[in-house]
Design a protein around this nucleic acid. Sequence first.
DNA 1: TCTACTTATTCAACGGATTGCGCAGCAATA
DNA 2: TATTGCTGCGCAATCCGTTGAATAAGTAGA
Lengths: 182, 182
Amino acid sequence: MSLRHAILVLLQDQEASGYDLAREFANSIGLVWNATHQQIYLELGKLNEQDMVKYRHIPQDGKPDKKLYRITDAGRDELIRWLRKPAAPPRIRDSFMVKIAGGALSEPSAVLRELEDQADLRRERLSTFEALAKALAERNSEKDMYTYLTLRRGILDQQAWLSWADEVRAELHKREDLPTSA
Amino acid sequence: MSLRHAILVLLQDQEASGYDLAREFANSIGLVWNATHQQIYLELGKLNEQDMVKYRHIPQDGKPDKKLYRITDAGRDELIRWLRKPAAPPRIRDSFMVKIAGGALSEPSAVLRELEDQADLRRERLSTFEALAKALAERNSEKDMYTYLTLRRGILDQQAWLSWADEVRAELHKREDLPTSA
DNA sequence: TCTACTTATTCAACGGATTGCGCAGCAATA
DNA sequence: TATTGCTGCGCAATCCGTTGAATAAGTAGA
């Protein structure tokens, strides 16, 4: 659980609606970790109940009304408290690892096929991230730095996965008698 | 959701109780991804209802009775079906990324301190994994291979995180005027 | 003109995961 | 003797996350 804190972080800078947050999410942390708008609205509701945020109701014409949320002092306190509290590193929860263990017992070639599919996806993601990171690095602004670092995290993660895939491929070919190419 | 499939994979080899599975989990996939016994018992219950597994009730003296679960044909079918179905790569859900974005706005030094704490943890985990992997590689048995690959995944993951931490450290030092050492 | 997208919020349902608790008895150790 | 730790199972509550859908009105494009 840290979506609530992610929201509080984003609200530190400016007032925003749930919709705004959903978009901002998609452009920063969400590049790597996405949250749906439902989640965000839900969390905003809870934060409001707990007086971590408050909102102004803004009637609009042409567009639907919106609620502009702002962080409160209680919210800022909670955020700081959370920042101080050390967090446990997240677990890897990759179903593909299960497939490797399972596939070897039934269909090794199917696992290899999926390995290649996943690798393609990862390579694609990698080049997307690299392009975005390059663009951000050139602008070199203070505000973009966190987005840049987030992207770097994503990049290193893809690279690590791809290296792992190389090892898995080699191991499987070594053990089974499988063709060298797909 | 792939705990159910992880369980089915483990049950392919042998009959096991929930307790056994919890332990096996801790020694293979669970090195990297842990599941609690509650989750496992719950999942076994559901799998049983759906006839994916069946069990024999084993009375014991000295110890509490146990249920030895075995995979059924329906379970094996389900497993194969799942193995064939391509899965989406998991998202990175690391609250530390949120902290970086948040900490810079309030207390950069606290974030750096936690970065080092996390790095220590990761380094520890890394050397544990490396020791285990080395031992497994020497035994070089067919059955250990999947555990070995799982460990390699964990190792590469820790290394990637540590590289990222180096970048974060460098970036933060570049921007803020902070001392070079902790 | 009809379709599709954007802005904006919310409800409902389900399933997965975590936390906390309880029961039960044996073995080892402090 | 008292405490801890291991084997073994389970319930209940809560939370987190995903999917799907509904409502509502403007605007851009085929």
